[in-house]
Design a protein around this nucleic acid. Structure first.
Length: 176
DNA sequence: CCCTGATTCGC
DNA sequence: GCGAATCAGG
């Protein structure tokens, strides 16, 4: 694949939009996230909308040869993505009978654009609960961490595996 | 272990 | 210029 102007344009858009390199790679197709990151750097837009941090320290590569060591590894703080994930929405694991929302409302609010899960980012241990209208531009997946092999996070497991009658009861109990 | 971006360097 | 391999961090 080559970097046509169209692809570069889309890359810029998605990167500015806050998508991760792997997500952009998936959208573009035919490239890896490494390619995306490399291109982003060559385009000079690596900074995204974050702290200036113009000072970049060259790091020492660890090649399996030459018994030289004695390098000073300077820690460089460059936190970009706020990956808080699970801890945010899964507080209710110990709650008795919360069932505050029968739908995806609270989680949707808790998942910012930058960390929404697309079908490309789902894996064995991410919540696959769909959020929004699949035909809409606002469609994505929960993406919170789940136990390996379990399709949903703790919160959505409650919804998915709870009989409808129980859900109604919970709603009624929560309502009054 | 999952993920993220950053950097280097052979092509 | 490109991107895999690698590094460093959450």
């Amino acid at each position: 694949m080559t970097w046509t102007t169209e692809r570069v344009d889309l890359l810029k858009k998605l990167w500015t939009d806050g998508l991760s390199a792997s997500q952009i790679a998936g959208e573009l197709g035919g490239v890896t996230r490494n390619a995306v990151i490399g291109k982003v750097h060559r385009l000079g837009l690596s900074g995204r909308a974050k702290a200036p941090a113009p000072v970049q320290k060259a790091r020492k590569i660890a090649k399996p040869a030459t018994g030289a060591s004695g390098g000073s590894s300077l820690p460089s703080k460059g936190g970009m993505m706020p990956q808080s994930h699970g801890a945010t929405a899964l507080k209710m694991e110990s709650a008795p009978a919360p069932a505050p929302a029968p739908q995806e409302r609270p989680v949707a609010e808790l998942v910012p654009l930058s960390q929404r899960a697309t079908i490309l980012t789902l894996n064995e241990r991410t919540c696959k609960w769909p959020i929004g209208d699949p035909t809409s531009d606002d469609f994505y997946f929960c993406g919170h961490s789940s136990d390996p092999g379990v399709p949903y996070c703790a919160y959505h497991c409650r919804i998915a595996y709870q009989p409808a009658t129980d859900r109604r009861r919970d709603r009624k109990a929560a309502a009054g």
